[in-house]
Nucleic acid binder design. Structure first.
Length: 659
RNA sequence: GCGCCCGUAGCUCAGCUGGAUAGAGCGUCUGGCUACGAACCAGAAGGCCGGGAGUUCGAAUCUCUCCGGGCGCACCA
């Protein structure tokens, strides 16, 4: 609602300034620092003052007087040295906000342009850890935001089932655990197989450290996995899908689902790279280096080619795409894959069903042959978001440069690296996990999570601890509730705490993980927000006990006179701030999508919850004797409840009925 | 060496398309429960917004520079 009025004001002001002063100015509108100063303000007169060589306050005064009436705006005032402040019609705003909250959110048309969001992307050789959780929570929230903004979204979780990480754990099975393919298959059927692999993977690191010559095993193993032959390939085929299923279960606990698992093995078998290689050669996007350190490699220039072209083999800024032995690098494959996402490769996967979620939603996987005829049309997106941590920025830039070199500038512009900083451990947390820090590590502010070293907080362990902690709280508060109900509430709270914790930081902040903060249910946390919803819902539950025929739909019509009276300044300012905030979710979503920053929504939810808690503390709704006022309070409670539930939903956080 | 990110209260972080008196949570201290449940609320203490210069009517926000920290720049993925 807020952005509707803001837009209206900007349009009216632009028109007025053009007609009255013959000036075309671009200006900002902002929230004044205090509510008594109105809801929208603009410093545009400072700019006009310069151009017209007149005092800003004088111009502001003229505008305040002469500006034609704007629907929804009660009055316009001059403030400070020349600000123009707009005051909303409070009751009208409330009425619009209540109507807006009750309306269903927009749904994307089936023919709308499609976005692909790729996230999670965990190597299928070990259990998921907190770093992966940040990726998945951000990716999933981005999906929810885009969908709310009316976009059609396809969710992909890329599976590198043929890479060195899988090869390493296969080496662990053969040379450390001494298992046969049959034994590995049996183990893979066990529920905590990802945990088994976690430990095994860490011991493979020691295995290499003990004897560096053992690294030779990696090349052979990798080759047989890629070519799909022998015991290593058989084991990889058992390990990778089993670990993927573990990851899917973990993510399902968090309410995260996917549409497609594109797999590295199909990219290899269907020779995606060969198709991309032809494109790249034909367009001269890459060339064969004949001399210098890169002799024999196909390389791509990253800088503007002008000065590099004259060089006699000195391609310092070139990125190797094909090695001198003829094999393609990771970036090369990634260029091919990115082309496929946009439908530019000229090749496609086949697909088969991989999993069906509890809600009936199907997750598909790529296959190289014998795919299902009923598979949806994957890929061919108009925008691609790759949720990948900030350390891979350079490689993501190379991929985009590859698209550009091929002449796909539009697609390059629509290739978005949704970048975020890593989750690290505080030294205290690492110690708590039984890890002994080196002197160098002890001096640092945090320690990087490392699957290779087996250092990290496993996602399921953290979830278990959160659920146990939440369960203890629920047991204390609701000892009479049935066991399964308490478990369900504890789960909802645990997920709320975890997702909020991962999303409240902006993407550029490194999260220094600490159990104390992550396990907190107080202050700026998910449960705090959930609790505000529960409080609002308790009011309505109690009310229904008194009036069984009460229906929330009856609150959708606002009595504007009564509302205006209650919201009138100065007494109503605090209430009005809550209403204003509740009616600003649309603005927040716009900002969050524009900046690609889910943390904005987390902040919004917390502030709205805070504002409601304050209201709740100051006003007894059900015992209010003035009937009109009571209805007004109920309307406020309902409005906040709906908006808060809606905001939390964007964060993937459910709002329980009680807690 | 080049590139990117970060430096704001004791701690963890918001605020950065320039704007009015710099915010929140945690922690510390002091208060508030007969329940629309305190997973809450109120109050107090705590800041040369890393340093310096510049642009501007106006800078935490933009530019430059220096300092401090992190990451990236492989014929690894």
């Amino acid at each position: 609602m807020y952005h509707v009025l803001e837009t209206r004001i900007r349009a009216a002001l632009t028109k007025h300034i053009r007609e009255r002063y013959s000036q075309d100015v671009t200006f900002v509108t902002e929230r004044p620092p205090r509510i008594e100063m109105g809801e929208v303000a603009t410093p545009v007169c400072f700019e006009l003052a310069k151009r017209l060589k007149r005092a800003p306050r004088q111009i502001a005064h003229e505008i305040a007087v002469d500006l034609p009436a704007i629907d929804g705006v009660a009055r316009v005032e001059v403030a400070g040295a020349g600000y123009v402040n707009f005051f909303f019609s409070r009751a009208a705003f409330l009425a619009a906000a209540v109507a807006g909250a009750a309306a269903a959110p927009p749904v994307a048309r089936p023919d709308a342009p499609k976005c692909i969001v790729e996230h999670t992307n965990i190597n299928p050789n070990k259990a998921a850890h907190i770093g992966h959780l940040r990726n998945a929570a951000l990716g999933d929230t981005l999906v929810r935001l885009l969908r709310r903004a009316g976009q059609r979204v396809e969710i992909q979780n890329y599976i590198d089932n043929t890479g060195v990480q899988v090869a390493d754990v296969v080496i662990g099975f053969i040379h450390i655990a001494k298992k046969s393919p049959e034994e590995v298959r049996a183990l893979a059927a066990q529920p905590k197989f990802d945990y088994f692999c976690w430990d095994l993977y860490a011991s493979v690191t020691h295995f290499y450290e003990e004897d560096k010559t053992r690294l030779a095993l990696r090349g052979e193993t990798l080759k047989s996995i890629e070519e799909d032959r022998g015991a290593p390939a058989e084991m990889a085929a058992a390990v990778a899908p089993a670990v993927v299923r573990c990851h899917l279960r973990t993510m399902e606990r968090l309410g995260i689902e996917y549409d497609l698992l594109p797999r590295e093995s199909e990219i290899l078998h269907l020779k995606f790279w060969d198709a991309a290689f032809e494109h790249l050669k034909q367009t001269n996007a890459i060339h064969l280096a004949t001399s210098g350190k890169n002799a024999g490699c196909w390389v791509m220039r990253l800088n503007d080619a002008a000065d590099a072209a004259d060089a006699s083999g000195e391609d310092d800024d070139a990125k190797i795409i094909v090695r001198s032995n003829g094999t393609v690098t990771y970036v090369g494959k990634d260029i091919a894959y990115q082309l496929w996402k946009f439908g530019l490769l000229g090749r496609d996967f086949q697909y088969e069903k991989f999993h069906t979620y509890a809600n009936g939603h199907t997750l598909w996987s790529t296959v190289s042959s014998g795919g299902s005829a009923s598979a949806p049309a994957f890929g061919r997106a108009s925008i691609v978001y790759n949720v990948i941590d900030a350390r891979q920025a350079y490689l993501q830039n190379v991929v985009v440069a590859g698209l550009r070199a091929l002449g796909f500038n539009e697609q390059a512009d629509r290739s978005i690296h949704f970048s975020y900083e890593i989750v690290a451990l505080t030294p205290r947390c690492a110690a708590e996990l039984g890890y002994t820090l080196s002197d160098e590590e002890a001096r640092k502010p945090y320690v990087e999570v490392s699957g290779r070293k087996g250092l990290g907080v496993k996602a399921d362990d953290l979830l278990d601890r959160l659920e146990a902690a939440a369960r203890a709280e629920v047991d204390q508060r609701h000892p009479a509730s049935p066991d399964n109900e308490r478990t369900a509430i504890a789960h909802t709270i645990a997920i709320g705490a975890l997702r909020y914790f991962l999303l409240k930081f902006t993407r550029t902040a490194i999260i220094a993980f600490d159990f104390k903060d992550a396990l907190s249910f107080e202050g700026e946390t998910g449960p705090y927000c959930q609790y505000a919803v529960v409080r609002a819902r308790n009011i309505f539950r109690k009310l229904r006990e008194q009036q069984p025929d009460f229906d929330c739909a009856s609150l959708e019509k606002v009595n504007q006179e009564a509302a205006e009276r209650s919201l009138a300044a100065p007494d109503g300012n605090t209430l009005w701030e809550m209403v204003l905030h509740a009616g600003s979710l649309g603005t927040q979503i716009e900002a969050a999508v524009g900046a690609q920053e889910p943390a904005f929504i987390a902040k919004y939810a917390f502030q709205l919850a805070q504002s409601f808690n304050l209201f709740y503390h100051h006003h007894r709704v059900l015992t209010e004797e003035d009937e009109a006022k009571k209805i007004f309070f109920l309307q406020l409670s309902r409005l906040v409840e709906l908006q808060l539930v809606s905001a939390l939903e964007l964060l993937g956080i459910e709002s329980p009925e009680k807690m």
